[in-house]
Design a protein around this nucleic acid. Structure first.
Length: 439
RNA sequence: CGGGGCAUAGCGCAGCCUGGUAGCGCACCUGGUUUGGGACCAGGGGGUCGCAAGUUCGAAUCUUGCUGCCCCGACCA
């Protein structure tokens, strides 16, 4: 992509409403535009990132055996009356009427709908387990949206729903998601720690929030230092195998959010020099809720015993739009964003330091062409800005690599390759620079 | 939902107290000089001063109502 033809509205000054660093950087880097309180348009750079996050989430869901569907954003109130949640949900739910004055709503979540879909088709335990997920916009009318897309009213969520014959099966499904989440966050460049969460009316130990540590996190969290260095499950893991040992290895260390924190246990179980108490951002939440929806909504299957059983369900959420902000919170410096390569909007920023200089233009065009041909995502700054301004913009938008081409280097047959994360710069020949970038 | 604050050009702000032809910086356009970490000079374009009513000869400025947005707290992927 040529910057001169792209739509990248970079702000030099920080809009005053932006309080936390990710919000400031997303606005300055031209990733998002606020349209209403807690409602954002995704501009090209932001949208590229969002799609990449979505794709990583999707790949890991698929790998774990979950199956993608797409349910609507608008739901009928009647469906929610079946579960009793239409009255229970409160003002967070955006309630609307259509032209026939029928009550409808913009979905804050999809348990009822997925249960309705499931019960319409599945009759036998032989068809279980199933895990259906979708990645869809949700709306929760937060009293006080804030921090940009970190806590917005409209947000993108991946929500998966598992169906099993009994609790034992549900635990296996739960474990798959647990492991899939570890892999997902790892691929996104995040160290997410599963922490025991409020399990609601169902009780039990199957409810965890995945938390990343960040100074701007919303809640206080406590955990054992060892959790930061536990190995992540590998891509060739057999999800049909026994995942309990992996799950147990994570749960064997103390980790809790404010609400679930037990100071006495923390002090007893964790040696003083291993205690971490920090702020955290919730980036995922998984929980088992048994027959909470299947029973009232009559989602039943026939078991091996010939009897009908309400299915045991769990639901598993990850917020890609929130993750975009969370990743920035975890990965930035004073100059701007530092994208992990897995979700960077472009891999390389090609900086032409002297547009109009024939040799420089020619070299840049050649490099640009070769990178494009090799399928390397490149943003080519072919604008007539000054060098300093180009450097500042590139640092701000945080592409992992900057390939800097100017007359001085070219005179000696070199270009400069800068690593955004480390700041390290190397003078290389064009060929070896391209080789390094996979071009 | 309780408490506080803001609304003036795309962004950041001044002007308001004490009413009298709307300003600054950045960004944008033109010309010139510059050119490896956010250049300089000269010229230029752009604003129903959030909306509505009131007071007044005259309202960005005073009064009232409304709307939007932000911050602090209680709640949430």
């Amino acid at each position: 992509m040529r910057l001169s033809r792209y739509f990248l509205p970079i702000l030099r000054e920080t809009p005053k409403e932006a309080e936390i660093v990710s919000h400031r950087l997303m606005l300055r880097a031209g990733m998002i535009r606020q349209e209403s309180a807690g409602i954002y348009a995704w501009l090209p750079l932001g949208y590229r990132v969002l799609r990449k996050i979505e794709q990583v989430v999707r790949e890991e869901q698929d790998r774990s055996g979950a199956i993608e569907i797409l349910m609507p954003t608008i739901q009928s109130a009647d469906l929610w009356r079946e579960s009793g949640r239409y009255d229970a949900y409160g003002k967070e739910m955006l309630r609307i009427q259509d032209r026939h004055e029928r009550d409808i709503l913009f979905g804050p979540t999809n348990e009822e709908m997925v249960t309705e879909i499931f019960r319409a088709y599945v009759r036998s335990y032989r068809d279980l387990p199933k895990n259906l997920y979708h990645i869809q916009w949700k709306f929760r009318d937060e009293v006080r949206p804030r921090f940009g897309v970190m806590r917005s009213r409209e947000f993108l969520m991946k929500d998966a729903y598992s169906f099993d014959l009994d609790q034992e099966g549900a635990r296996r499904s739960y474990n798959k998601m647990f492991v899939a989440y570890l892999r997902t966050f790892d691929r996104l460049g995040l160290t997410a720690i599963p922490m025991k969460a409020e399990s609601g009316p169902i009780g039990g130990d199957m409810s965890h929030e995945f938390i990343i540590l960040a100074s701007t996190g919303e809640s206080e969290v406590f955990c054992h230092k060892a959790l930061l260095d536990l190995p992540k499950p590998s891509p060739d893991l057999d999800f049909e195998g026994d995942l309990q040992p992996i799950v147990d290895s994570w749960l064997s260390h103390y980790a809790a959010t404010e609400e679930m924190h037990e100071p006495a246990r923390f002090e007893a179980e964790v040696p003083e020099d291993s205690r971490i108490s920090a702020r955290g951002i919730e980036v995922g939440h998984i929980f088992y809720f048994g027959t909470k929806y299947s029973a009232p909504m009559n989602a039943v299957v026939t078991g091996p015993d010939g009897q009908e059983h309400p299915v045991h369900m769990g639901s598993y959420g990850i917020g890609p739009s929130r993750l975009a902000a969370a990743i920035i919170e975890a990965s930035h410096d004073e100059n701007g964003i530092v994208w992990p390569e897995s979700i960077a909007p472009f891999k390389v920023g090609l900086v032409n330091l002297k547009v109009g200089d024939e040799a420089t233009d020619r070299a840049c065009e050649a490099i640009y062409g070769r990178l494009e041909a090799a399928g390397v995502e490149v943003l080519y700054d072919d604008t007539e800005e000054r060098a300093g301004s180009k450097f500042a913009s590139m640092d701000l938008i945080g592409l992992p690599w900057q390939l800097i081409v100017g007359p001085k280097g070219l005179a000696g047959g070199t270009v400069e390759l800068k690593n955004r994360a480390t700041g390290e710069r190397e003078s290389l020949s064009i060929d070896s620079a391209l080789a390094r970038l996979g071009g």
